[in-house]
Amino acid sequence: MIAYPIDPAELIARIEQEKPGWLARARDRKDAYAQARAYVEGGEFWGEIKGVYIALQHEKCAYCEMKLAGKAYAAKVHEVEHFRPKSRLRAWPGDIKRLKGYTPPCATGGASATGYYLHAYNPFNYAIACTRCNSSLKSDYFPVRGTRNFREEDAGLLRSEDPLLVYPIAGLDVDPAELITFIGVLAVPVHAAGPLYERAEVTIRFFDLNHEDLTTRRAEVIAALYLALRGKELAADAADIRDFSDGIARYLSPATGFSACAAAYYALYQKDRSLAVQIGREAQKLLPR
């Protein structure tokens, strides 16, 4: 995961530019849900501003960082993710088969029949996610360490719930890089213990960030970055050095898939060259043949 920094006022401005009048309609819908005290299905229109988040997130999933198709195919591959589920909530990990026997490092909150209905049309409750992360994994789970607050309308103030997942947009939460880093292709907590460790551990488990589907793709990035770094060191021609430097910059760009993993590998390469070389060579072995 990476942060997608944007001033909250700028995000609101982009939404209004993308779909004039959307914000007013969203307020009306929120008021209707407040009166009903529940999310009422039908006539959903959050997809109308999907393009704002696609552009902000560089066409990447907010959670696994997989690069998705462009805006032209948004309806097929980009899903509007409600960070806090808009209707019911299930207790996590519950009876999820892949987590059988797993004990979370802290409390993760109970279930709810209504969920965060006041945030169904809150722009600061949206992100773009792939089908794997949004529909298959996140679904209607939202683990929190504290007490759920279904009455608060300000997403920024909901940090009092002590959520265990990370919202990466608009600076409303901690930078994911403060919680999760990478050792080779594996996502690991930055901290060894404490609340930040617990958030990282739960997030990694929740989104199955070390599944082979993702580690194989990270191996491709590390292998390519390793070759670019080594190539730059060995190159004698100025043009070749520039080409390798440009390649390195592309892998580290937030617009590139799995850039958080690339950044961690790059930092390791500067700090511990021999270990980085070993990991780079191992990454090449993981590539499909």
Rank of each mutant, 00 (worst) to 15 (best):
D272S: 04
V40C: 06
D173A: 09
I183W: 09
Q278T: 04
P163K: 02
A55L: 10
V166G: 01
R132A: 06
C64F: 10
P168F: 06
A223W: 14
G70S: 11
Y73L: 13
I204H: 06
A74G: 12
L23D: 01
L227R: 15
R151W: 02
E153R: 04
D162I: 03
R151A: 14
T203H: 15
Y269H: 09
P176E: 09
E161C: 02
D140W: 06
E152T: 11
E201L: 00
V144D: 09
N125R: 05
Q284E: 15
L214T: 06
L234H: 12
L165E: 07
C133M: 07
G171E: 10
D7S: 04
I12V: 08
A107Y: 11
Y226N: 09
E18H: 08
A236N: 14
A32K: 13
V144I: 15
D7Y: 01
T114P: 02
Y4H: 10
P123E: 09
A267P: 01
I279L: 15
Q284V: 05
F206P: 06
T181C: 07
R217D: 15
L164K: 05
A264H: 10
H119M: 10
I12T: 11
R25C: 04
R29K: 15
L268N: 12
H58L: 03
A193T: 10
L214H: 13
A249Y: 08
A72M: 08
P143L: 03
A129S: 15
F83I: 03
A228C: 09
F258Q: 05
V190F: 07
G109F: 07
P163G: 01
N149L: 10
I204N: 05
A36S: 12
Y116E: 07
L68Q: 00
R25H: 08
A200I: 14
R230T: 09
R159W: 02
K50H: 03
Y33P: 02
C106V: 14
T131Y: 14
A262R: 05
S160D: 14
N210E: 05
C61P: 06
A223E: 13
G115N: 12
Y266D: 14
E161S: 05
C130R: 13
L11C: 06
A38K: 15
D7K: 07
G156I: 03
R218L: 03
A69I: 02
G231Q: 11
E212G: 00
F150Y: 15
K71I: 14
A200L: 13
A224Q: 13
M66Q: 10
K97N: 03
Y39R: 04
F150K: 10
V185W: 01
D240R: 11
I15V: 12
I15Y: 02
R88P: 00
Y141A: 01
R145E: 15
K50E: 00
I6W: 09
Q35T: 14
